[in-house]
Design a protein around this nucleic acid. Structure first.
Lengths: 252, 252
DNA sequence: CCATTGTGTGCGATATATGAACAAATGTCA
DNA sequence: TGACATTTGTTCATATATCGCACACAATGG
């Protein structure tokens, strides 16, 4: 790609939108400038553009995003068959298990939720399509990383900030790679409070009819109700059932 | 705002992203150019910019959005307290009712889903945060339009394409305005298969502590299981319960 | 084989980014 | 409170980047 094939004004604008996610609802020009490391004058033009197009409101001091901004993410959710295909199966899975069920794909070092059916809140944070979690310490992340070539998985771990979220979080790359091997061999991953104290989850890959892993699905449960040791016997067969139902639907 | 305070390259890029929602997953440069009515060279630069930043993939012929694009919508969902606040209440509502529950806000002539808890699929289309429906023929839309000044509601109807989706769809502006009055007086709206045959729904407004309507919540059910006439007696009290639980949480 | 449709590139006209300058608002401290 | 220092939003001049057009070429299909 040539230098001139890049619209820097567009790139800067996208950066400005993302700045809203990192902090609060409202951003002043100066705040947005700091978050994006762009010149105040430049950010101002981007924000005024967003306001002009109805993607943001401006009260003369603060800018806030409007729901119109959801059109952008929706362009992906509507255009990609995967989320729409998964949703009813997640609903059913969630109902049968009596717990939250989610689906995600890998994006860099993070997993991105693309669909979710929640029975109960088990996590302190609110997960919606578009929510992101570090892959190395999430059950779906383990499954998705295990599906990659080992060198690739290792490269992603190297780029990840391997943070000790809880005393139980595994952060040693070699240990994680070994776990990926087990996940590949046994077909599922269980997380026991590695992301957040009190939360266990179990995930399996979703493969298409060519055997390529295109997503992961999981069930999350409060550790107080379902000990990690019981996750497998309670939910693995339900997950496998859903996995099997999805495979023929995923043509590439 | 001065003419030079608008970054047209940014605006054009956003238009390109939205073009993906309207059709398929994959867009060629020429297709995107037609959809956006922008010059091919311009669209090409925007698409290459998206690809360069990881928001799109490019195989040399077609562009597809990547899950990274969800960050943009997520910036809104994460930054705005409303969706996160509503979600657990919707989950509970959905569980109690045994039907899908959703929340939405008004954006122009359409309602935008900002949260959803689905028990079962009742609609032919898949609704996710960011999904849009015409306001005039959706239960939440009726509630949100009823909350506006009548002149404003009428202006929105004038801008709406009042389409006869089913034989039951009401499309007469005066009739709709009269219905808004009833909704205002009685505090709820019921839709009987006006959007899609086989689908009934009932909605109530969500007000903040100053009495301003900030969103609407609804329950949808298959007409075959729950006749429209029964929607009120079955679900209104549950909705009112949720409405009451939310009000004190919504400070402005 | 020609007509059609799609993609890549060079160029002049036009739009935008940048950093500095300035005024207004805000914060700080005696 | 008043004087002073910071921070913020806005404007400006100008160097730089981008747009849309025209054209060349490639791929497709009848």
């Amino acid at each position: 790609m040539r230098e001139t094939d890049f619209v820097s004004g567009f790139g800067r604008g996208l950066k400005v939108i993302e700045a809203f996610g990192e902090t609060r609802q409202r951003l002043s020009i100066a705040e947005a400038s700091k978050l994006t490391e762009l010149d105040r004058a430049t950010v101002r033009r981007s924000l005024l553009t967003l306001a002009e197009l109805g993607y943001a409101d401006y009260d003369g001091k603060f800018f806030t995003l409007t729901p119109k901004i959801l059109r952008l993410g929706h362009a992906y959710l509507a255009a990609t068959p995967l989320p729409a295909l998964l949703q009813p199966h997640l609903d059913l899975l969630s109902e049968k298990a009596g717990q939250s069920a989610s689906a995600s794909v890998l994006d860099g070092t993070e997993i991105v939720y693309i669909a979710r059916a929640s029975q109960r809140r088990v996590m302190s944070i609110n997960l919606t399509p578009g929510s992101r979690l570090p892959a190395y310490c999430a059950s779906m992340g383990r499954v998705l990383l295990a599906a990659l070539a080992e060198s690739e998985a290792r490269a992603i771990l190297a780029r990840s900030e391997l943070k000790q979220n809880t005393p139980k979080t595994r952060t040693d790359p070699d240990e994680l790679i070994a776990e990926f091997r087990r996940v590949r061999a046994e077909g599922y991953a269980v997380i026991d409070q590695e992301l957040e104290i009190g939360l266990c989850s179990i995930a399996v890959p979703v493969d298409n009819d060519r055997g390529e892993t295109v997503a992961a699905i999981n069930i999350g449960a409060p550790a107080a109700l379902v000990p990690a040791a019981e996750m497998k016997e309670r939910y693995l067969s339900l997950l496998k059932e859903t996995q099997a139902a999805l495979r023929p639907l995923l043509r590439r």
